[in-house]
Design a protein around this nucleic acid. Structure first.
Lengths: 195, 195
DNA sequence: CTGTCAACTTGACGCCGTCAAGATACCTGA
DNA sequence: TCAGGTATCTTGACGGCGTCAAGTTGACAG
């Protein structure tokens, strides 16, 4: 399969390569030609599968959102019996865990200039991811919400973990280790519930 | 001055050009050569002032943090007599306002691969910006903090507004208008204080 | 076996960042 | 005043990049 003229699974191989490149050399090092090189094909083979660079990263982001959405759903389901606050906490922790463990996906997913955020498939799947959080909040009663709008509670939770994730990935929290990040988010959650 | 061999103020002109490029064509369109073109100099003139592309964006980020820190300080000072919660709110609003109004700066400031975040000057000035928020939180008494760690409260506030800002800039909140963004953050703050 | 079509290659174009070498203007000091 | 040095900017080159056009290969249906 490796020395065939037709690769057989080039599309997947290229997306795998994109992940490796980001992991090894950062998001700035991603190129169609480097991905092609790693997949063992010619420099313009990727264009036939993705159109252009943006198309390739859009497909990559789609893959990321797929795994992301599943992990959010699993995290929420696992603690469903422990109440809504536990679910929000679990989603938040899993959000950060995804950002750290799957950094290549996360970076492309939330960098609008990297992909085509008007792509219908991408819009659908990214919207679904947010739906996991939103459905938890919408299931909460007025007493759990403290009388606040569900949307405001959801956006507050989402913004906080997203902010922590991006600040950490951008090195703004270099004072903290990986370990610290999770004790930090727990502390932030606790501080919030306390006030 | 415009047709002199020596530009006279090239460094500033280039940084201005960078801002224009990002505003007009996005952060992906920034290049040393385009900045040079807009400043009316040859393609490799920028290298003499900034070393390389990363150096130019590091200087640009430094400019951004300078304005950013001043605005945070002014925002905190203006409502100093209204209490700590008012100060936190004012800082948060100003944070978002800066992200929206000065998007070119904000994007480069918080994209680690764009600049050199080991640069001593940049580290100092970005650390000072966070100091504005930190000093407000540290001035709060245990009753205002609800018994929580000051660092946790500060990180919670910072993460939330930073998350909102980046999500908005990345188009993840395309459902909301500019106007909505500020009513949204107010709603998020209110929802938090209510619970 | 043959025609068709998708998958991939080859080669070219202009833009990019970077480097080396050269040209120009300012500026100090005698 | 002017000579030399230095900072500033130009010119030209290199390889890597994204993209496009045209050609080649191989699978597969009839």
């Amino acid at each position: 399969m490796s020395d065939k003229y037709h690769h057989g699974d080039l599309r997947n191989a290229l997306l795998e390569a994109v992940g490796e490149i980001i992991q090894e050399r950062g998001i700035g090092a991603v190129s169609l030609r480097e991905a092609a090189r790693r997949a063992g094909v010619s420099h313009s083979a990727p264009a036939h599968h993705f159109g252009d660079k943006r198309g390739m990263l859009t497909a990559f982001a789609g893959r990321g959102f797929e795994e992301f959405g599943q992990r959010m759903q699993v995290a929420a389901d696992e603690v469903a019996e422990e109440g809504f606050q536990a679910q929000l906490g679990a989603i938040g922790i899993e959000y950060l865990r995804f950002a750290v463990e799957r950094r290549p996906y996360f970076e492309v997913m939330f960098r609008s200039e990297m992909h085509d955020n008007t792509d219908p498939d991408l819009k659908t799947i990214s919207h679904d991811s947010f739906g996991v959080l939103m459905s938890v909040v919408e299931a909460m009663g007025p007493e759990e919400l403290g009388g606040a709008e569900p949307m405001h509670v959801a956006m507050g939770a989402w913004s906080t973990v997203h902010g922590l994730a991006t600040l950490w990935l951008d090195g703004a929290l270099s004072q903290f280790t990986d370990e610290d990040l999770f004790t930090l988010v727990q502390g932030v959650f606790d501080a919030r519930n306390a006030s």
